[in-house]
Write a protein that binds this DNA or RNA. Structure first.
Lengths: 232, 232
DNA sequence: AGACCGCATATTTTCGAAAATACTTGACGC
DNA sequence: GCGTCAAGTATTTTCGAAAATATGCGGTCT
């Protein structure tokens, strides 16, 4: 499970966080059948809050529901990978443009801070994931979010957040790649500097490149290891 | 309630549809407190499926939740009106572009059909809404959906659908305007013809104009009658 | 042998009530 | 007079079990 624990004010919410993180972290692989009995067990609560959690997760695309036949972890596919990437290019691209146009000193400050914090942790490329990387992942999330935070559109923000979370499941796959040749830090750097310099077009271009490369990398991984548990 | 009735395979889904349509139709005005007792009464079922419905509606932006303090119908605001309009211009605009590029003969056929069906019903401007207009509204929905149906992106489609539904609450406000000066039919016509002619840029431009005007009209309405029940 | 039916089992969905939490009201102390 | 606390009420949240629905299995009939 990720950082937060005591933040849930309700059992339903805690179940939501637990299950969502289990899905994102890969503990519940794509396609896994989600039986209430097991989830109740996992979360230590009755069926009602678990059900509520799954309803939310389904609305957000993490799980699927066949009525009267149960929930499953939503499958991963190369089509969806690209659909997510393209949609993010469009939506976060515009949000970034707006953010650069509208953001004030406070926005710049938060952005600089987020970028610094992310750079400060060298991503431990060789280690097992879900340990040290969980920390890096959080800072990465904050960085991307702070890029578009000043866009002034709650809707674009919430859509972006949702797509980021969905992309997370794919992104984590690339962590499993032994030696990662990509210079992610550099890509971040380019986006960051352009944004700070208020060069919206450059920043948006670099952001799009960033998502394009991420998708390409994950695609390569999926094509190579055509694992039985990952439905293509 | 709208068209569908027997389509719900589950009580939770039927509650979802009922409540959602009550919100969209204005029977449950913005800000209304949603007590479980009343909703159980309205839907004729126990608390569990009602709760599930509200969870979904909240994920989709129709209702809001304050934990342990209940649900409310999400408020309407001029800011959100424009946020929705701008987001739709961006997202549906791109979806339309893609649809025009990728759509085949089947797409064209469905589009022509949808447009025809919509034109066939003269919108009864002076009558009370929710009676005849409900039919027009449905055809209008189908028309807009069929424009972008061939875009090839499930994500853009589902986002568009969500935004369309949210916009619906605002759009209905303009139905209350006594004599509606706007030539909506013409705007539809322009979009439709450009799309058929595969002139993506024109079609997208007209679509954006269409959403801009709709928002302007609703904004004027909201500013005029600063009703007590509509929080600005 | 193969398809179809019906029973037993597994699982989801819904219920009605209990527990937890928030709100109201009125009394008390300062 | 005014804020604070407490008991009672209203409401949400959670539970555990019943009802509804799907699944698997074994037997029968062709």
């Amino acid at each position: 499970m990720t950082a937060v624990a005591g933040t849930a004010k309700t059992l339903a919410e805690s179940a939501y966080l637990r299950i969502r993180d289990a899905i994102r972290g890969g503990a519940l692989p794509p396609g896994t059948r989600l039986r209430f009995a097991e989830l109740q067990d996992l979360c230590g609560m009755s069926v009602t809050p678990v059900r509520e959690a799954l309803t939310r997760l389904t609305a957000e695309g993490f799980t699927t529901l066949e009525e009267n036949r149960g929930y499953r972890v939503a499958p991963l596919s190369i089509e969806e990978l690209w659909d997510i990437a393209r949609s993010r290019q469009l939506i976060e691209g515009e949000a970034l443009r707006l953010s650069i146009a509208k953001g004030g000193a406070d926005w710049e400050g938060a952005l600089v801070s987020a970028h610094h914090l992310m750079k400060r942790i060298a991503r431990t490329t060789q280690q097992a994931p879900t340990v040290v990387d969980e920390d890096w992942n959080h800072r990465h999330t904050v960085f991307h979010r702070s890029l578009i935070l000043a866009c002034g559109s709650p809707i674009l923000l919430s859509i972006s957040e949702g797509l980021y979370d969905r992309a997370d499941r794919y992104r984590r796959l690339s962590w499993a790649i032994p030696d990662n040749p990509r210079a992610i830090e550099e890509e971040h750097e380019l986006i960051f500097k352009s944004a700070l310099a208020r060069d919206a077009e450059a920043a948006v271009t670099y952001l799009r490149v960033h998502y394009e490369r991420t998708a390409q990398q994950v695609e390569a991984f999926l094509l190579n290891k055509a694992q039985p548990d990952v439905s293509i």
